[in-house]
Design a protein around this nucleic acid. Structure first.
Lengths: 324, 324
DNA sequence: CTGTTAGCGCATTCAG
DNA sequence: CTGAATGCGCTAACAG
């Protein structure tokens, strides 16, 4: 059926070792090289990647574990990860873990089974116990043990920036709305940065943290508004929350831009050619993806890496804040 | 280093064949089974998936090739594909081909290299020549040769439905706006269905097909409006186009709902818990994904499959059409 | 039902 | 620089 190295070697009149060496870019005399190349072309030979993976224990594959690809932040991130891996000659396994530690655990096993060389993971579930120090694992937005490197945007700075941008646009009473999760993660820092800035600058503010998972946004917001009806600037933990919040506010007669300005977080777009959905603190997803890929490939190669990479965010206006 | 079947067999006092059979679910006497299980646990044995893939020429892996995961339609589709594959014990390779036939070709090679068992592809580029009849390939939204199965939504019916829904809501002059691509694909049928319905019902209509790739939407629409300023119902080839069109119309003083109603296509949402971005003809992405997975797994197993699967669409209102 | 054995295709020794 | 030989871990065929 399929043509193997042996066939190539036979046709070229050389040993299989020579063919193998050639394919792996080891020095070969020019004459033999040409013979082998001709044979390869003549037979339309393709090296069997599975055999190679078996032999070398390297699959040239990285797994990306995320809650769900069905979310613009993750899909953009995944896009850049795949791009970057592809440039390095690696393939990408995609896994929607959806917070299912079973599935996450499966992929960790695959590393041991030498089906996967390493893992880039965005996970908010409790998989600490599976993460051993010698596992090539890079975490996004979450700090595990001291052994695991992670990449994150400057969430704290983003929170500060959001408050600053609202203040610059004339807002006098700011509020922050976010979720609160049993498994702590970096997004909490967004609210913290916001709070720190407000305190430092003496800005009037309040904070609403709703326990996740959030099934109903209306009730907690209604409660919150009884004490904070006079806000004119809103910072939300992410863009999706921002859009939901606007919908709820509308029920209470609050219209964005007329009654308040709003800044989200993430920099969510439908696709690369369209605008942001709300004014937002943009996470540099491409840079984050590239940093994660660089880290994981180093780990796979056994090179020591930095413990963490924090990348700067920036503000982008998109219709829910006033022009300046 | 790593523990192999031989170690397990030795500890359990059986032959490697027995261990192998157990792992592959072949009948084994209860007593030996327990011995082997104990040995596996004692040694913390993990079957080497790479060796298995090598031996069986089956990687339990399907590749999904799409233009870009960074798009809500594709990311939702990918989500469902991964879910479905996962249930069947398969892993997913993700490939952003971005219309790069090179990359698509690479993955087709991987099938031959037995790194991938089959491919599900959404591709609008010219890869016909690579698609051979014995390649396990399932196409989405595109018809290749007679040998290749494909899954698609009822695009023609969706076009009819859009026209009907606009008519039911009182629109008198309908327009269709879509792109036109050198490589024909099923989306063209959306406009065709729209046109067929209008003709059948004697509805006043016009059609604008803009050559892709579309860099500027404003100019062609401005031109078009000089002849068709009196429209009150708009059907767009997809939701993203619909949103762009609304933006352009606004420049010309046309406000959605007040001056016209609009229906898109796809059923685009930010994520599973949120609303559609515009009123839309929804493609049943989950069902399409499951159908594609079912088809490709049959092909991998060497089972004859149906040539094509066409799935019904439905209308969903979301703020750019009037309530009824 | 089970132990033994023969490769799968390749990378990598080891001699030359 | 090269050919021949070895074995990676596993499955499947074979003989019991």
């Amino acid at each position: 059926m399929s043509v193997t190295m042996k066939d190539v070697a036979a046709l070229a009149g050389v040993g299989v070792g020579t063919v193998s060496r050639m394919i792996n870019g080891v020095a070969v005399k020019d004459v033999t090289r040409r013979k082998v190349e001709a044979a390869i072309k003549a037979l339309d030979y393709e090296p069997d990647a599975a055999a190679r993976a078996f032999k070398t224990n390297h699959s040239q594959t990285i797994a990306l574990i995320l809650p769900t690809i069905w979310h613009p932040f993750f899909s953009e991130f995944a896009y850049h990860v795949e791009e970057s891996l592809s440039e390095h000659g690696y393939k990408l396994y995609l896994c929607n873990a959806d917070g299912d530690p079973e599935k996450e655990h499966d992929y960790i096993q695959m590393v041991k089974q030498s089906k996967v060389d390493g893992i880039i993971g965005i996970t908010y579930s409790d998989i600490d116990k599976f993460i051993s120090s010698n596992l090539p694992f890079v975490s996004i937005d979450r700090h595990f043990s001291e052994e695991v490197s992670y990449v994150t945007a400057d969430n704290f700075g983003g929170g500060e920036l959001a408050a600053e941008e609202l203040q610059k646009r004339g807002c006098k009473k700011l509020i922050y709305i976010g979720g609160i999760n049993p498994y702590p993660n970096e997004t909490t820092l967004r609210g913290d940065g916001f709070e720190a800035y407000c305190r430092a600058k003496g800005i009037d503010f309040d904070i609403l943290r709703i326990p996740e998972p959030i099934s109903d946004l209306t009730t907690p917001i209604a409660d919150f508004l009884t004490k904070n009806a006079d806000f004119d600037g809103v910072f939300c933990v992410n863009d999706a929350m921002g859009m939901d919040v606007m919908t709820v506010f509308k029920k209470f007669g609050k219209e964005v831009l007329r009654d308040y300005q709003l800044i989200g977080f993430d920099g969510t777009r439908i696709d690369s050619s369209r605008n942001y959905l709300v004014s937002t603190i943009v996470q540099p997803k491409k840079e984050m993806a590239e940093a994660a890929v660089a880290l994981i490939l180093k780990k796979v190669a056994g090179i020591e890496t930095e413990k963490r990479v924090i990348l700067p965010v920036f503000f982008e206006s998109a219709g829910t804040t006033k022009d300046m």
